[in-house]
Write a protein that binds this DNA or RNA. Structure first.
Length: 917
RNA sequence: GGGCCGGUAGCUCAGCCUGGAAGAGCGCCCGGCUUGCACCCGGGAGGCCCCGGGUUCAAAUCCCGGCCGGUCCA
């Protein structure tokens, strides 16, 4: 805050209206007010909540507050903009839409693209999970999902819209006229905002302890700790829609205001008793001062509430904790519905994990409440409640409920597993350490509260540190970026640098994807091997499509193009040999058409398959990755279950129908805002291009995506599509592999080849292969059985030999050849033999090709008299090998020549060992 | 994307640290006992110890690589 010059805040508006600048007695911040009695900034925690006593227009629901806000700004020259999904698909550094400004980052805020309207108004549903553990406890200050209403103005050097004066006045007028708050109750607190490399002064608008809005003036770039003015100055505001509803409804908690009747439904379904009203108002009063992260503050809070409502502290704590859990479940179920409606698939990575996090926390709270209701039905109530505001919830209802039920089942399984693990742990130890708790949670997903509960049942007391989850979080290092999209450099650095400043290459492959030959001029050549032309039909690697190869001919002869890459807008051909090319040379290029045509077919097939998968499985299907090669195409899609055979069949069938329908495929370059408005964010399947104009590829009435690749003019050219593989590659992601057109025949031929080879090996034709195979398996089973009988015969023979074996000092010794080179079998025979002859020491000889493997075993009597390990070592020493063992068995490896002396030496060594004993 | 845990009989798991003849409970099959039950007694079948490589006389066990599953974090 020290960064700001006080002049940043001295607005003409304040002077005109008669605002006075004061300093908060508690927190020391400066603020502007019309009220001579205010000596605090009116924001928590400097002051407790008292807005229930401040006059305002009658009760407004969340929807009312939103409509009032948008209506007000629309009347004041702002164009309403449709909110975006809560999943920030257009951002590579964020998973969730955490604020309205996120909608305009990075393309608009960086100046690359104009805003969709200017000035504009929006109410953006946002999801923030950082404070998820505080939700409920603070009776409404923290929510995982909320609507951020905002008016934004983008001031360019050559186009000023409005700045601080107008912004402050709008806020003042909105709150006084639309919400009906008395002017003297409104306080503008001076503040400083920083985020995402930008910064600027801001005002926080607080009334009666509640911060209702933040007005940010983004005007600096933060570079090396210094603030540099930026050309594009942005008015970034954020009004809490839920808070406005809370403010006008004067309810003890925000949850009462946001959820109305739904609160009561949840209360009875979750079995949470209605708390005494005076307790809740005491909580309201005290909550503004509560710092939920600080155990002392929490204790003080409970004490204060207890005293004010004449209750025992522990009793008050118990009631408030149950209330907090109820509110959490309300909050989380709404967030779950919002996230899943926008197509998030719960998984163990990315935004999918965030969805799982919320779902699991909701389930945990329900469990702690001892509630006997399933999560899906609670989410369903939310869908019904919000369907008017967020229609996508209703459209995606069946997916949402299915995904939630599945997650619920999986969590239950995880807990069951955890309970078993815990039971085993407690069998061994009397107490659980923090490390045990962390392992149980981090590696096995069992939350510490559940551990404590289970442990208590077994009479073991477990202390869970209040900052347990922070401890866990601290053990994980932060990654560098959240999503890996974008091009990786494929060219040597110096080449990339050398071509970087060149003019954009004309893309003949876009003008005519069917062009095979072209003429062009040399623009640059690096190291003789990296050729840049003014125009090219060679497609560079990108957008999941492989590059073209071919030949170029120039005055210096012909060279093969072995790779093609893109550096910004410049296309670089990599030649197989250096050439004497120079700038201005006329060249002719020819691409490898067979390769290219297959790539095109696989690329268009990918768009067709994606559209088919979405229709069969649902709108939550997004491309999670794709690759098109000459041989086949691969598409990873988000989906919460493994695909069934039937689903795969239907996707394939639908895809082929689109092929048969001969739909047109068209590419149009259009303005980014226009494309987003017309087609939505579904166009960003393969990533988000950083361009003001984007190339839109449309498969007629089937699929629309931003795409750089080369495509067929008509789906009919894909010929046919055959899905050759479908597998779940990770939680929430299914991979499809398929081939198109002539590759289908090749694939069929390949499989046919495998089949006939298998049939040939099995001795028959492909038709009879299954029958033949089951016959072979049966035969194998019979052979094993025979082998077992022959081993018994061997055993009987050895049995007889053992009876007359050589005696050494009361023991018997025997060496025999093992007819099969199988150590396991030898050990088995030895075991059975020595169990029949307790006094026997037997050696089985196995010819292992490069030497002699000897397994020795002793019967129980013999084992009691000699240490076979020592015998084996001595034997190895005498015969030039190595060996050892323990207890009744030993093994050794000897040179082949040792065979003739083995039996003799064994008896000798044994004799000496016995003498020693 | 990264961290952690796991993969042994149909199921749930022990054995692995410290290498030396693959185990338990449940389930299954057979027999006995019993009106009956999550009864009891006796016997039995059932294993590429995830895969590949390495170390070793010897690997379920140690080392390396992979595959698969779980889980947490951003």
């Amino acid at each position: 805050m020290a960064q700001a010059d006080s002049r940043e805040y001295a607005l003409e508006f304040f002077r005109e209206e008669g605002f006075e600048r004061r300093r908060c007695r508690v927190g020391g911040e400066y603020f502007w007010t019309l009220n001579p009695d205010f000596d605090t900034c009116q924001d928590a925690p400097c002051v407790e909540y008292w807005f229930d006593r401040i006059r305002s227009r009658g009760p407004m629901s969340v929807g009312d507050a939103r409509r009032a806000f948008i209506g007000f700004f629309q009347r004041h020259g702002h164009e309403p903009v449709e909110p975006r999904p809560v999943v920030a698909r257009w951002r590579e550094d964020l998973y969730l839409t955490i604020a309205s400004i996120v909608v305009f980052q990075p393309h608009v805020t960086s100046g690359l693209v104009p805003p969709p309207a200017n000035p504009l108004v929006i109410s953006q549903p946002s999801v923030r999970l950082e404070d998820i553990d505080n939700v409920g406890l603070t009776i409404g200050r923290h929510l995982t999902s909320f609507e951020m209403a905002a008016h934004h103005a983008f001031n360019y050097p050559d186009k000023r819209v409005y700045w601080k004066e107008e912004t402050a006045r709008y806020a003042f007028e909105f709150f006084t006229r639309e919400v009906g708050i008395p002017p003297e109750m409104i306080v503008f607190k001076e503040s400083w905002w920083e985020g995402g490399g930008n910064a600027g002064p801001s005002f926080e608008v607080a009334v009666g302890g509640l911060e209702l809005a933040t007005l940010v003036f983004m005007q600096y770039k933060v570079a090396d700790g210094r603030y540099e003015p930026i050309p594009l100055r942005i008015v970034d505001t954020g009004y809490g829609v839920e808070r406005i509803a809370w403010f006008t409804q004067k309810t003890p908690t925000a949850f009462h205001a946001i959820y109305g009747d739904l609160l009561g439904r949840f209360r009875s379904l979750l079995g949470v008793e209605e708390p005494p009203e005076d307790l809740m108002w005491a909580a309201f009063r005290a909550a503004g001062r509560l710092d939920p992260e600080d155990p002392e503050s929490l204790q003080a809070y409970y004490t204060r509430v207890a005293r004010a409502s004449g209750m025992d502290v522990e009793e008050a704590r118990a009631v408030l904790e149950r209330e907090a859990r109820l509110y959490s479940v309300l909050d989380h179920t709404k967030t779950i519905a919002l996230m899943l409606a926008d197509g998030v698939v719960p998984s163990n990575t990315g935004e999918g994990y965030l969805a799982r996090l919320v779902i699991r926390r909701a389930l945990r709270q329900m469990r702690l409440l001892g509630a006997d209701v399933d999560l899906a039905s609670l989410v369903d109530l939310q869908i019904g409640f919000w369907a008017g505001d967020f229609p996508r919830m209703r459209e995606e209802r069946s997916y949402i409920l299915d995904a939630v039920s599945l997650e619920e089942r999986r969590f239950r399984e995880t807990l069951e597993k955890g309970a078993r693990l815990l039971a085993q742990l407690l069998k061994r130890k009397r107490t659980l350490t923090l490390d045990d708790l962390i392992t149980l949670y981090d590696s096995h997903g069992v939350p510490p509260e559940v551990v404590a509960e289970e442990a208590a049942r077994r009479g073991v007391k477990v202390e869970v540190p209040h900052n347990f989850y922070s401890i866990v979080a601290a053990r994980h290092k932060a990654p560098e970026r959240v999503r890996a999209i974008g091009e990786r450099p494929e060219l040597p650095d110096h080449v990339a640098r050398a071509v970087a400043g060149l003019p954009e290459t004309r893309r003949l492959f876009h003008e005519d994807p069917y062009m095979r030959r072209f003429r062009a001029r040399v623009v640059a050549v690096v190291d003789g091997r990296y050729l840049v032309l003014d125009a090219t039909a060679f497609y560079p690697k990108g957008g999941g499509q492989d590059y073209d190869i071919g030949v170029v001919r120039g005055p210096w002869g012909e060279a093969r193009v072995v790779e093609t890459h893109k550096v910004g807008g410049v296309i670089v051909h990599v030649l197989d040999r250096p050439v004497e090319a120079s700038r201005g040379d006329q060249v002719e290029g020819e691409i490898d058409w067979v390769r290219r045509y297959r790539l095109m077919r696989h690329h268009t097939a990918t768009h067709i398959v994606l559209g088919a998968a979405r229709r069969v499985l649902g709108n939550h299907v997004w491309q999670a990755g794709a690759e098109k090669t000459v041989e086949k195409a691969r598409l990873d899609i988000t989906h919460h279950r493994p695909l069934t055979r039937e689903e795969i069949r239907r996707i394939e069938e639908l895809a082929n129908r689109v092929v048969d329908e001969r739909r047109r495929v068209r590419a149009v370059v259009m303005d980014r805002n226009e494309a987003e408005r017309r087609y939505g964010f579904r166009i960003y399947q393969g990533g988000v291009p950083m361009e003001p104009k984007i190339r839109i590829l449309e498969v007629e009435d089937w699929d629309v995506e931003a795409c750089f690749g080369t495509h067929l003019a008509n789906t009919g050219e894909a010929g046919a599509i055959k899905i050759v593989r479908a597998e779940r590659i990770q939680d929430g992601v299914v991979r499809l592999e398929y081939v198109a057109a002539t590759r289908v025949a090749e694939e069929a031929a390949r499989l046919e080849g495998i089949l006939s080879e298998a049939a040939r090996l099995a001795g028959g034709d492909p038709e009879s292969l299954p029958r033949r195979l089951s016959g072979l398996l049966e035969e194998e089973r019979r052979l094993r059985e025979s082998l077992r009988r022959y081993r018994s015969l061997l055993l009987d023979a050895l049995d007889a030999r053992a009876a007359t074996a050589r005696e050494v000092d009361g023991l018997k010794t025997l060496a025999f050849e093992m007819p099969e080179p199988d150590r396991k079998a030898a050990q088995e025979v030895l075991r059975r033999l020595t169990s029949r002859h307790p006094e026997l020491v037997a050696a089985a000889l196995i010819d292992s090709g490069d030497g002699l493997q000897v397994e020795i075993a002793a019967g129980s009597t013999a084992a009691g008299r000699v240490d076979l390990g020592a015998v084996a070592r001595e034997l190895a020493a005498r015969l030039g090998g190595r060996g050892g063992g323990r207890g009744p068995r030993a093994s050794l490896r000897l040179p082949r020549e040792a065979r003739s002396r083995l039996e003799e030496e064994l008896a000798a060594v044994l004799g000496e060992a016995l003498k020693g004993s």
